[in-house]
Design a protein around this nucleic acid. Structure first.
Lengths: 242, 242
DNA sequence: CGGCTCGTTGACAATAATCAAGCGAGGTGG
DNA sequence: CCACCTCGCTTGATTATTGTCAACGAGCCG
Protein backbone atom coordinates (compact mmCIF):
# COMPACT_ATOMS: atom_id res chain seq x y z
CA UNK A 1 0.00 0.00 0.00
CA UNK A 2 2.99 2.31 0.28
CA UNK A 3 3.93 3.73 -3.12
CA UNK A 4 6.03 6.76 -4.09
CA UNK A 5 2.88 8.59 -5.16
CA UNK A 6 0.93 8.08 -1.92
CA UNK A 7 1.70 11.52 -0.50
CA UNK A 8 0.95 13.21 -3.82
CA UNK A 9 -2.40 11.43 -3.90
CA UNK A 10 -3.08 12.46 -0.31
CA UNK A 11 -2.39 16.08 -1.23
CA UNK A 12 -4.55 16.00 -4.36
CA UNK A 13 -7.39 14.35 -2.50
CA UNK A 14 -7.48 17.31 -0.13
CA UNK A 15 -8.58 19.32 -3.17
CA UNK A 16 -10.71 16.97 -5.27
CA UNK A 17 -11.78 13.37 -5.63
CA UNK A 18 -9.49 11.06 -7.59
CA UNK A 19 -10.79 8.02 -9.43
CA UNK A 20 -9.12 4.62 -9.03
CA UNK A 21 -8.02 4.91 -12.64
CA UNK A 22 -6.37 8.26 -12.00
CA UNK A 23 -4.52 6.88 -8.99
CA UNK A 24 -3.27 3.99 -11.08
CA UNK A 25 -2.20 6.35 -13.82
CA UNK A 26 -0.18 8.35 -11.31
CA UNK A 27 1.40 5.24 -9.82
CA UNK A 28 2.22 4.00 -13.31
CA UNK A 29 3.80 7.29 -14.35
CA UNK A 30 6.89 6.79 -12.19
CA UNK A 31 9.75 5.73 -14.44
CA UNK A 32 12.38 5.37 -11.75
CA UNK A 33 13.55 6.47 -8.33
CA UNK A 34 16.53 8.69 -7.60
CA UNK A 35 18.46 9.53 -4.44
CA UNK A 36 20.20 12.85 -3.95
CA UNK A 37 22.54 13.80 -1.10
CA UNK A 38 22.18 16.88 1.11
CA UNK A 39 23.16 20.12 -0.62
CA UNK A 40 23.34 18.52 -4.05
CA UNK A 41 21.38 19.97 -6.92
CA UNK A 42 18.29 18.09 -8.06
CA UNK A 43 18.03 20.29 -11.15
CA UNK A 44 20.24 23.21 -12.16
CA UNK A 45 19.41 26.54 -13.72
CA UNK A 46 19.44 26.28 -17.54
CA UNK A 47 18.84 22.53 -17.43
CA UNK A 48 16.22 21.15 -19.81
CA UNK A 49 14.88 18.16 -17.86
CA UNK A 50 13.11 15.36 -19.73
CA UNK A 51 11.34 14.22 -16.58
CA UNK A 52 9.88 15.92 -13.53
CA UNK A 53 10.78 15.06 -9.94
CA UNK A 54 8.22 14.20 -7.32
CA UNK A 55 9.69 14.53 -3.84
CA UNK A 56 9.04 11.31 -1.93
CA UNK A 57 11.25 11.86 1.08
CA UNK A 58 13.30 14.77 2.40
CA UNK A 59 13.19 18.55 1.97
CA UNK A 60 14.18 20.51 -1.13
CA UNK A 61 14.37 24.19 -2.11
CA UNK A 62 14.10 26.15 -5.32
CA UNK A 63 16.62 28.96 -5.46
CA UNK A 64 17.95 31.71 -7.66
CA UNK A 65 21.46 33.13 -7.62
CA UNK A 66 21.90 36.73 -8.72
CA UNK A 67 24.95 37.80 -10.74
CA UNK A 68 26.12 39.53 -7.54
CA UNK A 69 26.23 36.08 -5.94
CA UNK A 70 23.37 36.56 -3.51
CA UNK A 71 20.97 33.64 -3.18
CA UNK A 72 17.21 33.68 -2.72
CA UNK A 73 15.20 30.58 -1.91
CA UNK A 74 11.84 30.94 -3.66
CA UNK A 75 10.13 27.76 -2.49
CA UNK A 76 10.55 25.04 0.10
CA UNK A 77 9.30 21.61 -0.87
CA UNK A 78 8.16 18.79 1.37
CA UNK A 79 7.33 15.17 0.53
CA UNK A 80 4.40 14.91 -1.87
CA UNK A 81 5.45 18.05 -3.80
CA UNK A 82 6.48 18.09 -7.45
CA UNK A 83 9.64 20.19 -7.31
CA UNK A 84 9.88 20.93 -11.04
CA UNK A 85 6.60 20.02 -12.66
CA UNK A 86 6.75 23.43 -14.39
CA UNK A 87 9.75 22.29 -16.43
CA UNK A 88 7.29 20.11 -18.37
CA UNK A 89 6.06 23.25 -20.17
CA UNK A 90 8.68 25.91 -19.38
CA UNK A 91 11.30 23.54 -20.85
CA UNK A 92 14.33 25.47 -19.62
CA UNK A 93 14.84 25.87 -15.86
CA UNK A 94 15.18 29.50 -14.80
CA UNK A 95 16.34 28.45 -11.32
CA UNK A 96 17.91 25.53 -9.49
CA UNK A 97 16.42 23.05 -7.06
CA UNK A 98 18.63 21.71 -4.27
CA UNK A 99 18.26 18.99 -1.67
CA UNK A 100 18.09 20.49 1.83
CA UNK A 101 18.41 16.95 3.22
CA UNK A 102 19.06 13.61 1.63
CA UNK A 103 16.12 13.18 -0.73
CA UNK A 104 14.31 10.43 -2.52
CA UNK A 105 12.68 11.43 -5.79
CA UNK A 106 10.26 9.67 -8.13
CA UNK A 107 10.78 10.67 -11.76
CA UNK A 108 7.92 11.15 -14.20
CA UNK A 109 8.91 11.46 -17.87
CA UNK A 110 7.58 14.51 -19.65
CA UNK A 111 6.31 12.19 -22.37
CA UNK A 112 4.07 10.59 -19.73
CA UNK A 113 2.84 13.99 -18.56
CA UNK A 114 2.07 14.85 -22.17
CA UNK A 115 0.00 11.70 -22.47
CA UNK A 116 -1.89 12.60 -19.29
CA UNK A 117 -2.82 16.01 -20.77
CA UNK A 118 -4.02 14.25 -23.94
CA UNK A 119 -5.94 11.41 -22.33
CA UNK A 120 -6.79 12.25 -18.73
CA UNK A 121 -7.96 15.87 -18.70
CA UNK A 122 -9.21 15.81 -15.13
CA UNK A 123 -5.93 14.46 -13.81
CA UNK A 124 -4.11 17.06 -15.92
CA UNK A 125 -6.20 19.79 -14.31
CA UNK A 126 -5.18 18.55 -10.88
CA UNK A 127 -1.51 18.67 -11.85
CA UNK A 128 -2.08 22.19 -13.18
CA UNK A 129 -3.77 23.00 -9.87
CA UNK A 130 -0.61 21.91 -8.05
CA UNK A 131 1.42 24.50 -9.93
CA UNK A 132 -1.26 27.12 -9.24
CA UNK A 133 -0.97 26.45 -5.52
CA UNK A 134 2.80 26.88 -5.81
CA UNK A 135 2.12 30.27 -7.39
CA UNK A 136 -0.35 31.17 -4.62
CA UNK A 137 2.40 30.44 -2.10
CA UNK A 138 4.77 32.65 -4.09
CA UNK A 139 2.26 35.50 -3.85
CA UNK A 140 1.85 35.02 -0.13
CA UNK A 141 5.64 35.09 0.33
CA UNK A 142 5.86 38.24 -1.80
CA UNK A 143 3.31 39.87 0.47
CA UNK A 144 5.19 38.95 3.64
CA UNK A 145 8.51 39.93 2.11
CA UNK A 146 7.26 43.33 1.04
CA UNK A 147 4.91 44.27 3.80
CA UNK A 148 5.80 42.58 7.07
CA UNK A 149 8.58 42.72 9.62
CA UNK A 150 11.27 40.07 9.79
CA UNK A 151 9.67 38.60 12.91
CA UNK A 152 6.20 38.40 11.40
CA UNK A 153 7.62 36.88 8.25
CA UNK A 154 9.38 34.14 10.21
CA UNK A 155 6.22 33.44 12.21
CA UNK A 156 4.29 33.16 8.95
CA UNK A 157 6.77 30.74 7.43
CA UNK A 158 6.58 28.49 10.47
CA UNK A 159 2.77 28.50 10.31
CA UNK A 160 2.84 27.61 6.63
CA UNK A 161 5.32 24.78 7.02
CA UNK A 162 3.30 23.38 9.90
CA UNK A 163 0.12 23.32 7.81
CA UNK A 164 1.79 21.83 4.77
CA UNK A 165 3.57 19.14 6.77
CA UNK A 166 0.44 18.27 8.71
CA UNK A 167 -1.27 17.61 5.38
CA UNK A 168 1.18 14.83 4.59
CA UNK A 169 1.36 13.48 8.14
CA UNK A 170 4.82 14.80 8.95
CA UNK A 171 3.97 16.65 12.14
CA UNK A 172 4.06 15.23 15.65
CA UNK A 173 1.64 17.17 17.83
CA UNK A 174 2.85 20.77 17.67
CA UNK A 175 6.32 19.74 16.54
CA UNK A 176 7.87 19.04 13.17
CA UNK A 177 11.29 18.43 11.77
CA UNK A 178 12.65 21.36 9.80
CA UNK A 179 16.19 20.88 8.58
CA UNK A 180 16.90 24.43 7.34
CA UNK A 181 20.03 26.08 8.69
CA UNK A 182 19.83 29.69 9.76
CA UNK A 183 21.70 30.67 6.62
CA UNK A 184 19.09 28.90 4.47
CA UNK A 185 16.33 30.53 6.49
CA UNK A 186 17.94 33.88 5.79
CA UNK A 187 18.01 33.14 2.07
CA UNK A 188 14.33 32.21 2.28
CA UNK A 189 13.21 35.30 4.17
CA UNK A 190 15.62 37.75 2.57
CA UNK A 191 17.50 38.32 5.84
CA UNK A 192 21.08 38.05 7.05
CA UNK A 193 22.01 35.00 9.09
CA UNK A 194 22.63 37.17 12.12
CA UNK A 195 19.20 38.68 11.95
CA UNK A 196 17.55 35.28 11.56
CA UNK A 197 19.19 34.30 14.79
CA UNK A 198 17.88 37.38 16.58
CA UNK A 199 14.37 36.84 15.22
CA UNK A 200 14.32 33.23 16.43
CA UNK A 201 15.54 34.40 19.81
CA UNK A 202 12.66 36.86 19.98
CA UNK A 203 10.09 34.20 19.08
CA UNK A 204 11.56 31.93 21.75
CA UNK A 205 11.50 34.70 24.38
CA UNK A 206 7.91 35.56 23.50
CA UNK A 207 7.11 31.87 24.08
CA UNK A 208 5.62 31.42 20.63
CA UNK A 209 7.90 28.78 19.18
CA UNK A 210 11.18 27.00 19.85
CA UNK A 211 13.60 25.79 17.17
CA UNK A 212 16.26 23.38 18.43
CA UNK A 213 18.34 20.80 16.60
CA UNK A 214 16.13 20.98 13.57
CA UNK A 215 12.91 20.43 15.55
CA UNK A 216 10.37 23.23 15.55
CA UNK A 217 7.82 23.24 18.38
CA UNK A 218 4.93 25.64 18.34
CA UNK A 219 4.13 26.79 21.86
CA UNK A 220 1.31 29.20 21.03
CA UNK A 221 -0.42 28.62 17.70
CA UNK A 222 -2.86 31.49 18.02
CA UNK A 223 -0.14 33.94 18.98
CA UNK A 224 2.10 32.79 16.15
CA UNK A 225 -0.70 33.07 13.61
CA UNK A 226 -1.63 36.55 14.82
CA UNK A 227 1.94 37.76 14.74
CA UNK A 228 2.50 36.31 11.26
CA UNK A 229 -0.91 37.48 10.00
CA UNK A 230 -1.32 33.91 8.80
CA UNK A 231 -4.48 32.50 7.27
CA UNK A 232 -4.38 29.17 5.48
CA UNK A 233 -6.84 30.32 2.81
CA UNK A 234 -4.12 30.61 0.17
CA UNK A 235 -3.20 26.94 0.57
CA UNK A 236 -6.54 26.05 -1.03
CA UNK A 237 -7.45 23.22 1.29
CA UNK A 238 -11.00 22.78 0.05
CA UNK A 239 -12.24 19.63 -1.61
CA UNK A 240 -14.44 20.41 -4.59
CA UNK A 241 -14.72 19.43 -8.27
CA UNK A 242 -11.98 21.00 -10.38
CA UNK B 1 -8.55 41.43 -38.01
CA UNK B 2 -8.60 43.11 -34.63
CA UNK B 3 -10.16 40.82 -32.04
CA UNK B 4 -10.00 40.87 -28.23
CA UNK B 5 -7.77 37.81 -28.31
CA UNK B 6 -5.16 39.21 -30.73
CA UNK B 7 -2.67 40.20 -28.05
CA UNK B 8 -3.11 36.90 -26.21
CA UNK B 9 -2.42 35.06 -29.47
CA UNK B 10 0.63 37.26 -30.09
CA UNK B 11 1.95 36.35 -26.64
CA UNK B 12 1.29 32.63 -27.04
CA UNK B 13 2.90 32.61 -30.49
CA UNK B 14 6.11 33.87 -28.92
CA UNK B 15 6.22 30.53 -27.11
CA UNK B 16 4.74 28.00 -29.54
CA UNK B 17 2.91 27.64 -32.82
CA UNK B 18 -0.89 27.93 -32.71
CA UNK B 19 -3.10 26.20 -35.28
CA UNK B 20 -5.86 28.10 -37.05
CA UNK B 21 -8.34 25.94 -35.17
CA UNK B 22 -6.81 26.90 -31.85
CA UNK B 23 -6.97 30.59 -32.70
CA UNK B 24 -10.61 30.21 -33.63
CA UNK B 25 -11.30 28.37 -30.41
CA UNK B 26 -9.74 31.22 -28.44
CA UNK B 27 -11.68 33.85 -30.37
CA UNK B 28 -14.88 31.88 -29.86
CA UNK B 29 -14.31 31.49 -26.14
CA UNK B 30 -15.07 35.14 -25.38
CA UNK B 31 -18.56 35.34 -23.93
CA UNK B 32 -18.68 39.10 -23.48
CA UNK B 33 -16.67 42.28 -22.96
CA UNK B 34 -16.56 44.30 -19.78
CA UNK B 35 -15.26 47.77 -18.95
CA UNK B 36 -13.91 48.68 -15.53
CA UNK B 37 -13.01 52.15 -14.29
CA UNK B 38 -9.65 53.13 -12.76
CA UNK B 39 -9.18 51.89 -9.19
CA UNK B 40 -12.22 49.61 -9.33
CA UNK B 41 -11.89 45.94 -8.51
CA UNK B 42 -11.99 43.48 -11.40
CA UNK B 43 -12.26 40.58 -8.94
CA UNK B 44 -12.25 40.67 -5.17
CA UNK B 45 -10.63 38.42 -2.61
CA UNK B 46 -12.97 35.53 -1.69
CA UNK B 47 -14.90 35.88 -4.95
CA UNK B 48 -15.68 32.67 -6.84
CA UNK B 49 -15.66 33.82 -10.46
CA UNK B 50 -17.48 31.74 -13.09
CA UNK B 51 -15.43 33.29 -15.88
CA UNK B 52 -11.84 34.45 -16.26
CA UNK B 53 -10.82 37.91 -17.45
CA UNK B 54 -8.46 38.50 -20.32
CA UNK B 55 -7.09 42.05 -20.23
CA UNK B 56 -7.64 43.64 -23.64
CA UNK B 57 -6.78 47.23 -22.82
CA UNK B 58 -5.36 49.03 -19.79
CA UNK B 59 -3.23 48.01 -16.81
CA UNK B 60 -4.31 45.89 -13.86
CA UNK B 61 -2.72 44.64 -10.63
CA UNK B 62 -3.18 41.66 -8.35
CA UNK B 63 -2.92 42.67 -4.72
CA UNK B 64 -3.20 41.34 -1.21
CA UNK B 65 -4.25 43.30 1.86
CA UNK B 66 -2.88 42.12 5.21
CA UNK B 67 -5.04 42.25 8.35
CA UNK B 68 -2.81 45.17 9.43
CA UNK B 69 -4.08 47.02 6.36
CA UNK B 70 -0.83 47.05 4.42
CA UNK B 71 -1.12 46.30 0.71
CA UNK B 72 1.22 44.34 -1.52
CA UNK B 73 0.87 44.25 -5.29
CA UNK B 74 1.93 40.77 -6.41
CA UNK B 75 1.58 41.15 -10.17
CA UNK B 76 1.13 43.86 -12.78
CA UNK B 77 -0.84 42.91 -15.85
CA UNK B 78 -0.68 44.42 -19.32
CA UNK B 79 -2.92 43.86 -22.34
CA UNK B 80 -2.86 40.24 -23.51
CA UNK B 81 -2.60 38.88 -19.94
CA UNK B 82 -5.21 36.70 -18.27
CA UNK B 83 -5.57 38.39 -14.90
CA UNK B 84 -7.35 35.57 -13.11
CA UNK B 85 -7.04 32.44 -15.21
CA UNK B 86 -6.00 30.65 -12.02
CA UNK B 87 -9.48 31.10 -10.59
CA UNK B 88 -10.59 28.45 -13.10
CA UNK B 89 -9.01 25.78 -10.87
CA UNK B 90 -8.37 27.56 -7.56
CA UNK B 91 -12.09 28.42 -7.48
CA UNK B 92 -11.86 30.92 -4.62
CA UNK B 93 -9.76 34.07 -5.11
CA UNK B 94 -7.12 34.48 -2.41
CA UNK B 95 -6.43 38.06 -3.56
CA UNK B 96 -8.04 40.92 -5.45
CA UNK B 97 -7.35 42.28 -8.92
CA UNK B 98 -7.81 46.00 -9.50
CA UNK B 99 -7.79 48.24 -12.54
CA UNK B 100 -4.80 50.58 -12.49
CA UNK B 101 -6.34 52.44 -15.43
CA UNK B 102 -9.67 52.18 -17.20
CA UNK B 103 -9.66 48.60 -18.51
CA UNK B 104 -11.39 46.56 -21.14
CA UNK B 105 -11.73 42.88 -20.36
CA UNK B 106 -12.82 39.87 -22.41
CA UNK B 107 -14.56 37.25 -20.32
CA UNK B 108 -14.09 33.53 -20.87
CA UNK B 109 -16.53 31.25 -19.00
CA UNK B 110 -14.93 28.56 -16.88
CA UNK B 111 -17.20 26.06 -18.62
CA UNK B 112 -15.47 26.96 -21.87
CA UNK B 113 -12.04 26.55 -20.29
CA UNK B 114 -13.15 23.17 -19.02
CA UNK B 115 -14.12 22.18 -22.55
CA UNK B 116 -10.73 23.31 -23.84
CA UNK B 117 -8.96 21.04 -21.32
CA UNK B 118 -11.19 18.15 -22.44
CA UNK B 119 -10.98 18.67 -26.19
CA UNK B 120 -7.94 20.80 -27.07
CA UNK B 121 -5.08 19.50 -24.96
CA UNK B 122 -2.38 21.51 -26.73
CA UNK B 123 -4.25 24.76 -26.29
CA UNK B 124 -4.85 23.81 -22.66
CA UNK B 125 -1.12 23.33 -22.20
CA UNK B 126 -0.49 26.82 -23.56
CA UNK B 127 -2.96 28.30 -21.09
CA UNK B 128 -1.25 26.33 -18.32
CA UNK B 129 2.05 27.71 -19.61
CA UNK B 130 0.70 31.23 -19.19
CA UNK B 131 0.10 30.60 -15.50
CA UNK B 132 3.57 29.07 -15.20
CA UNK B 133 5.12 32.23 -16.62
CA UNK B 134 3.15 34.25 -14.07
CA UNK B 135 4.73 32.05 -11.39
CA UNK B 136 8.20 32.52 -12.90
CA UNK B 137 7.69 36.28 -12.62
CA UNK B 138 6.62 35.84 -8.99
CA UNK B 139 9.88 34.00 -8.30
CA UNK B 140 11.92 36.70 -9.96
CA UNK B 141 10.15 39.36 -7.90
CA UNK B 142 10.75 37.34 -4.73
CA UNK B 143 14.44 37.25 -5.56
CA UNK B 144 14.66 40.99 -6.14
CA UNK B 145 12.56 41.68 -3.05
CA UNK B 146 14.74 39.55 -0.82
CA UNK B 147 18.18 40.07 -2.23
CA UNK B 148 18.52 43.42 -3.97
CA UNK B 149 18.52 47.07 -3.01
CA UNK B 150 15.51 49.30 -3.56
CA UNK B 151 17.24 50.96 -6.51
CA UNK B 152 18.17 47.70 -8.22
CA UNK B 153 14.66 46.40 -7.67
CA UNK B 154 13.13 49.44 -9.34
CA UNK B 155 15.56 49.15 -12.26
CA UNK B 156 14.60 45.50 -12.63
CA UNK B 157 10.88 46.25 -12.65
CA UNK B 158 11.33 48.86 -15.37
CA UNK B 159 13.33 46.39 -17.50
CA UNK B 160 10.66 43.74 -17.08
CA UNK B 161 7.77 46.03 -17.97
CA UNK B 162 9.65 47.25 -21.02
CA UNK B 163 10.16 43.68 -22.27
CA UNK B 164 6.61 42.61 -21.59
CA UNK B 165 5.13 45.70 -23.22
CA UNK B 166 7.39 45.41 -26.23
CA UNK B 167 6.03 41.91 -26.75
CA UNK B 168 2.53 43.27 -27.28
CA UNK B 169 3.61 46.32 -29.23
CA UNK B 170 2.98 48.87 -26.50
CA UNK B 171 6.41 50.52 -26.46
CA UNK B 172 7.48 53.50 -28.52
CA UNK B 173 11.23 53.37 -29.03
CA UNK B 174 12.70 53.40 -25.51
CA UNK B 175 9.52 54.82 -24.00
CA UNK B 176 6.33 53.30 -22.70
CA UNK B 177 3.29 54.42 -20.81
CA UNK B 178 3.25 53.23 -17.21
CA UNK B 179 0.34 54.56 -15.22
CA UNK B 180 1.43 53.43 -11.73
CA UNK B 181 1.49 56.12 -9.06
CA UNK B 182 4.43 56.22 -6.69
CA UNK B 183 2.21 54.79 -3.97
CA UNK B 184 1.34 51.83 -6.21
CA UNK B 185 5.00 51.43 -7.11
CA UNK B 186 5.79 51.31 -3.40
CA UNK B 187 3.18 48.63 -2.86
CA UNK B 188 4.74 46.68 -5.73
CA UNK B 189 8.32 46.93 -4.55
CA UNK B 190 7.62 46.76 -0.83
CA UNK B 191 8.80 50.35 -0.25
CA UNK B 192 7.37 53.52 1.22
CA UNK B 193 6.13 56.18 -1.18
CA UNK B 194 8.85 58.53 -0.01
CA UNK B 195 11.54 56.03 -0.78
CA UNK B 196 10.13 55.30 -4.23
CA UNK B 197 10.49 58.97 -4.96
CA UNK B 198 14.11 59.01 -3.83
CA UNK B 199 14.91 55.92 -5.89
CA UNK B 200 13.40 57.42 -9.03
CA UNK B 201 15.38 60.59 -8.41
CA UNK B 202 18.55 58.54 -8.20
CA UNK B 203 17.79 56.71 -11.46
CA UNK B 204 17.12 60.05 -13.11
CA UNK B 205 20.34 61.58 -11.78
CA UNK B 206 22.33 58.56 -12.92
CA UNK B 207 20.83 59.11 -16.38
CA UNK B 208 19.41 55.61 -16.57
CA UNK B 209 15.71 56.35 -16.89
CA UNK B 210 13.21 59.18 -16.59
CA UNK B 211 9.63 58.79 -15.39
CA UNK B 212 7.40 61.79 -16.07
CA UNK B 213 3.64 62.07 -16.35
CA UNK B 214 3.23 58.34 -16.61
CA UNK B 215 5.77 58.00 -19.43
CA UNK B 216 8.89 55.97 -18.73
CA UNK B 217 11.89 56.59 -20.97
CA UNK B 218 14.93 54.38 -20.77
CA UNK B 219 18.09 56.41 -21.35
CA UNK B 220 20.64 53.64 -20.85
CA UNK B 221 19.32 50.12 -21.32
CA UNK B 222 22.60 48.38 -20.59
CA UNK B 223 23.18 50.40 -17.44
CA UNK B 224 19.64 49.78 -16.24
CA UNK B 225 19.90 46.04 -16.90
CA UNK B 226 23.24 45.84 -15.09
CA UNK B 227 21.99 47.78 -12.09
CA UNK B 228 18.81 45.67 -11.87
CA UNK B 229 20.68 42.41 -12.56
CA UNK B 230 18.03 41.81 -15.20
CA UNK B 231 18.01 38.92 -17.64
CA UNK B 232 14.89 38.15 -19.64
CA UNK B 233 15.42 34.39 -19.36
CA UNK B 234 12.63 33.98 -16.84
CA UNK B 235 10.10 35.47 -19.27
CA UNK B 236 10.46 32.32 -21.40
CA UNK B 237 10.53 34.04 -24.76
CA UNK B 238 11.50 30.95 -26.76
CA UNK B 239 9.30 29.46 -29.43
CA UNK B 240 9.27 25.66 -29.20
CA UNK B 241 6.75 22.82 -29.06
CA UNK B 242 5.02 22.61 -25.68
C1' DC C 1 -11.21 79.77 -5.98
C1' DG C 2 -10.65 75.70 -3.04
C1' DG C 3 -9.96 71.11 -2.39
C1' DC C 4 -8.31 67.08 -4.18
C1' DT C 5 -4.38 63.82 -5.52
C1' DC C 6 0.25 63.15 -6.67
C1' DG C 7 5.01 64.25 -6.46
C1' DT C 8 8.96 66.27 -3.85
C1' DT C 9 12.08 67.25 -0.08
C1' DG C 10 14.22 67.51 4.69
C1' DA C 11 14.86 65.85 9.43
C1' DC C 12 14.79 62.12 12.28
C1' DA C 13 13.80 57.19 13.78
C1' DA C 14 13.49 52.28 13.20
C1' DT C 15 14.92 48.14 11.13
C1' DA C 16 18.16 45.12 9.48
C1' DA C 17 23.02 44.52 7.59
C1' DT C 18 27.82 44.13 8.47
C1' DC C 19 31.86 43.22 11.10
C1' DA C 20 33.96 40.74 14.62
C1' DA C 21 34.42 37.39 18.06
C1' DG C 22 33.47 33.26 20.61
C1' DC C 23 31.12 28.76 21.68
C1' DG C 24 29.90 23.88 21.18
C1' DA C 25 29.19 19.56 18.68
C1' DG C 26 30.85 16.35 15.52
C1' DG C 27 34.27 14.56 12.44
C1' DT C 28 39.09 13.48 11.19
C1' DG C 29 43.79 12.51 11.14
C1' DG C 30 48.11 12.02 13.68
C1' DC D 1 42.82 9.23 22.30
C1' DC D 2 43.25 13.79 21.63
C1' DA D 3 44.26 17.95 18.96
C1' DC D 4 42.34 20.41 15.61
C1' DC D 5 39.07 21.82 12.20
C1' DT D 6 34.83 22.96 10.40
C1' DC D 7 30.18 24.18 10.60
C1' DG D 8 26.31 26.14 12.65
C1' DC D 9 24.67 29.02 16.32
C1' DT D 10 25.05 33.16 19.30
C1' DT D 11 26.04 37.85 20.77
C1' DG D 12 27.77 42.78 20.86
C1' DA D 13 29.07 47.03 18.45
C1' DT D 14 28.59 49.83 14.64
C1' DT D 15 26.81 51.19 10.08
C1' DA D 16 23.61 51.38 6.18
C1' DT D 17 19.19 51.33 4.35
C1' DT D 18 14.65 52.43 4.49
C1' DG D 19 10.53 54.14 7.06
C1' DT D 20 7.99 57.86 9.34
C1' DC D 21 6.56 62.46 10.04
C1' DA D 22 5.91 66.86 8.30
C1' DA D 23 5.55 70.32 5.04
C1' DC D 24 4.96 72.29 0.52
C1' DG D 25 4.21 72.72 -4.66
C1' DA D 26 1.96 71.61 -9.11
C1' DG D 27 -1.86 70.26 -11.68
C1' DC D 28 -6.64 69.12 -12.17
C1' DC D 29 -11.55 69.45 -11.46
C1' DG D 30 -15.82 71.14 -9.81
Amino acid sequence: MTSPVDLLIAKLEQRDRLSADEKETLAGSIARLRRVATDDDIVREADRPRESSLLVEGFAARYKILPSGRRQITAIHVPGDFVDLHSFLLKTMDHGVMALTACELALVPHATLLRITEEKPHLARLLWLGTLIDAAIHREWLTMMGRSSATAHMAHLICELFCRLQLVGLTDGWSFRCPLTQEELGDTLGLSTVHVNRVLKELRERKLVSWQNGIVTIANWQGLQDLGEFSELYLNLIREPR
